[in-house]
């Protein structure tokens, strides 16, 4: 059977085989990692005390960048909406577009991507460095479960704080668009607010927050996984960091589509 694969086809076949085995092994390790996290979740006494600090680092410290991005997103949304709607469509539709787009898509996704860079890289680099300098081993020898001590607080913090940050980002984006509408588009507050409220349903907010929480979970777990499984030196830490950011950005977009398919 194997003799069929000969000559020029051997190298590509081997490559495909190796990649498949590598991917499967990676997924297996990731599954094990997740199972470990699940187990460590029960150890609240260990991860509980570290949670607040991580919430500060992952959530509160991410607010400035998230708000900055959201503000400019809001401004651009308002301007482009009014540009697209020239003449034919009433102005208050700027409010409709800003509200819906910000809540359903741009608020969570842009914040998610920004935090994939900021938080994901930070986590992967930190854990990666701790791994290559044997700090994680040291933790284990001192009787700590590093998953409970290092990983779970970060994952929980991201799960809790991403929705909070996204809530602020949504509000910021809408306020910025509002200010833009008033100052640059000659709209009035009642017009803009009318558009905002026109098609609003509370589920929009729920959807936004569900997305944000799933992004937080993805970014933190992926960051932790790559950091945790780093082996080597500084270069390996760099590689893990890059992989964590790239993969979590991709997963964010996939999740984005997934929620759109399942929840909308």
């Amino acid at each position: 059977m194997m003799k069929v694969i000969t000559g020029a086809w051997r190298a590509p076949a081997a490559w495909v085989g190796r990649s498949a085995v590598g991917t499967a092994a990676g997924m297996g390790r990731f599954g094990q990692f997740l199972a470990g996290i699940g187990h460590a979740l029960t150890d609240v006494r260990t991860w509980g005390p570290a949670l607040v600090a991580q919430m500060g680092r992952i959530g509160v410290a991410s607010l400035p960048i998230a708000l900055f991005i959201a503000a400019f997103t809001g401004i651009v949304l308002a301007l482009q909406a009014s540009y697209t709607f020239t003449g034919a469509i009433p102005k208050y539709f700027v409010g409709v577009l800003v509200g819906k787009t910000m809540l359903l898509e741009l608020g969570p996704v842009l914040t998610g991507l920004a935090l994939a860079g900021r938080v994901g890289a930070n986590i992967a680099a930190e854990l990666g460095t701790m791994r290559v300098t044997e700090q994680i081993d040291a933790l284990e020898t001192l009787g700590y479960d590093p998953l409970a001590h290092l990983v779970v607080p970060k994952v929980m913090a991201a799960l809790i704080m991403f929705p909070v940050v996204v809530a602020f980002a949504n509000a910021m984006g809408i306020v910025a668009a509002w200010a833009t509408a008033l100052n640059l588009l000659d709209m009035t507050t009642p017009e803009f607010v009318r558009g905002l409220r026109l098609f609003f349903v509370p589920f929009d907010v729920t959807y936004s927050l569900i997305k944000a929480a799933s992004f937080g979970l993805a970014v933190a777990t992926i960051g932790c996984f790559f950091g945790f499984t780093t082996w080597g030196g500084a270069q390996a830490v760099g590689r893990s960091t890059t992989q964590a950011v790239v993969l979590s950005s991709m997963v964010i977009l996939v999740l984005d589509a997934f929620w759109a398919v399942t929840l909308l």
Partner: peptide, 16 residues
């Protein structure tokens, strides 16, 4: 983990 509390480990590069 319980066993490890009875074992001290001095790392080659300190691992502080």
């Amino acid at each position: 983990y319980n066993l490890r509390r009875r074992v001290g480990y001095v790392f080659q590069f300190a691992a502080l």
